[in-house]
Simulated assay, not measured.
Amino acid sequence: MTTAEPSNPVPVDATPGPIYIDTQHEDMVHDAQMDYYGSKLATCSSDRTIKIYNVSENAYELSATIQGGHEGPVWQVSWAHPKFGVLLASCSFDGSVLLHQEVRPREWTVIHAARHLHESSVNGVAFAPHEHGLLVAAASSDGRVSVLQHEAANNTWGVHYLTDCPLGVNAVSWAPWGAFYQADQVEAPRLVTAGCDNQIRFWIYQEGQWTTDSSIVLDVTEVAHKDWVRDVAWAPVLLPNHNMVASCSEDGSVIVWTQVPPANVDGDENTQESFSQWKPTLLHKFDAPVWRVSWSVTGHFLAVSAGDSDVTLWKAGLDGAWSQVSTVDAQSTSQGQ
């Protein structure tokens, strides 16, 4: 059920800096995501609701409250590309993934309810790049990742399952379109997942099935997570075969994995190795668990949300070393409210 909210824009301080929004959730907020245009904000909470806000540089307003769909805490939300309409996916402790669409301004409806999609909590959800079609991946504590695919011909949804980590999967992220390039080949969808076995895993869709991407080799000899990997995020790509993935862990570590471009074989520029190595760089070791990592649109900045109530912003220098450039801490948050 959707509750349309009255239009009462709340002005915000015009001074440059963070904008604080009173979400009006009745319990802990677990995720907040901006849409493609940066004009809508979706939040989800342990109160089992999703709230949609219209936002601008100098005001925000609560547009709708989506409630009654999930039977447990809602962990994460994800916006689809606008070519598919105003579409939002949500995942919950109840093992389900729901797809919500704004059919009219301020009016939302569930267009697909994948209930009991998993046998345990669904911890992460993400839409694929629109070039692959309408696909949404979900990571679950039952150790599997599901990929929902919309069949436009008959308006139905199919599902593929990946058996990932037996201990559970906390997050999933898609490779951006253009992340990998091979002449005369259509780019295959790829995923990276965050597991409760302290590892990240890469997956590729080939010949009608999802398999482990054996072309990616991770160098874990010096830097690795020592506890659950809580989140993983594939950076936007500016050049093919120049990829970065950020992961964060319960142990407080944030690692940036950087692809080493495939080397030429025997000096032949048209022949490359069939695999690529990924080198890890420890961005920082926090004193508290790190829950979320998120890239800027260009992939130049990385936001990190940790258990110390701080959100920090990081940027890599020309030498490859990461440095903190900004922070939003609990003290400033309380002052802003």
Rank of each mutant, 00 (worst) to 15 (best):
Q206L: 04
G133I: 12
V290I: 14
Q272D: 01
W174N: 14
Y53Q: 06
V10T: 15
G85S: 02
I52L: 13
M34Y: 12
D251G: 06
T109I: 13
R106G: 00
V122T: 09
H150F: 15
P261E: 08
V192R: 06
S92D: 07
M1V: 10
D94R: 12
I255R: 05
D27G: 04
S141T: 15
W314S: 05
V147Q: 12
Q24R: 13
V55G: 08
I111F: 06
M244C: 09
A188C: 00
W210S: 06
I52T: 06
S173F: 15
S121F: 15
L282F: 01
Q101C: 07
A288T: 00
V147T: 04
W314F: 05
T15R: 13
K40V: 12
A183M: 09
T211D: 06
V297D: 02
T65V: 15
Q76T: 14
S96T: 13
W234S: 04
M34S: 12
A171F: 14
W174T: 14
F286R: 04
N123L: 10
H81L: 10
N155V: 13
S214C: 02
V172H: 14
W203I: 15
M34C: 06
V172Y: 10
E71T: 11
Q337F: 12
Q182E: 05
E119I: 01
Y37Q: 08
S334R: 04
G124Q: 07
T3D: 10
T109W: 01
A89C: 07
Q331A: 09
S56N: 10
L117C: 12
V103C: 06
L135K: 09
A246V: 08
W291Y: 01
V256Q: 03
M28N: 13
P176F: 07
N54M: 00
R292L: 09
P240Q: 04
E71A: 14
S146H: 08
T271Y: 06
L87Y: 04
N241Y: 10
G267C: 01
Y20H: 08
Q67Y: 01
H132D: 13
A138C: 07
D197M: 09
V232G: 03
Y161K: 13
I66E: 02
A137W: 10
D268L: 04
F127A: 09
D310P: 01
Q149S: 06
Y181G: 07
V304T: 08
R230K: 11
Y37C: 14
L218D: 14
S214H: 10
S214A: 13
G299W: 00
D184H: 11
A263G: 07
H150Y: 15
D31K: 06
L135D: 02
N264F: 07
G72V: 06
S294C: 10
A4P: 12
E151N: 15
P236R: 05
D231Y: 02
E107C: 05
K279C: 11
H116E: 11
N198K: 13
H132V: 07
L41K: 10
A306R: 03
L134G: 05
L148Y: 13
D22W: 05
G68K: 05
F275S: 12
Y60C: 05
D142P: 04
C91D: 11
Y36G: 00
F84R: 00
K315Q: 14
P176C: 11
I204G: 08
A114M: 09
V237I: 13
G252W: 03
I111L: 02
L167H: 00
A113D: 04
L238V: 10
S296R: 04
